[in-house]
């Protein structure tokens, strides 16, 4: 059971690491829109975006 003395502190550090990751994810808005990315990946075509037509100043 000696391995516990290494593994348990390690797991505490791991949880700390995951918490930091979640903190970053929440702060950068990863959870703000849970629907969009699903649609976005389906509709994104791979063709490069062509330059838009010149904006005629009327």
């Amino acid at each position: 059971m000696e391995s516990l003395y290494l593994l348990i502190p390690l797991s505490v550090l791991l949880v700390g690491g995951i918490l930091w990751l979640l903190w970053w994810a929440v702060g950068s808005g990863q959870f703000d829109d849970l629907e969009g990315p699903g649609h976005r990946i389906l509709m994104d075509d791979d063709r490069p975006v062509p330059a838009p037509p010149p904006d005629d100043l009327r």
């Binding site: 649609h39 976005r40 509709m43 330059a51 838009p52």
Partner: peptide, 15 residues
């Protein structure tokens, strides 16, 4: 959802 995609792409393509 396609409307949103359209808006996003179109705005992103503006110089």
């Amino acid at each position: 959802a396609a409307c949103l995609w359209l808006n996003e792409r179109h705005l992103a393509a503006q110089p």
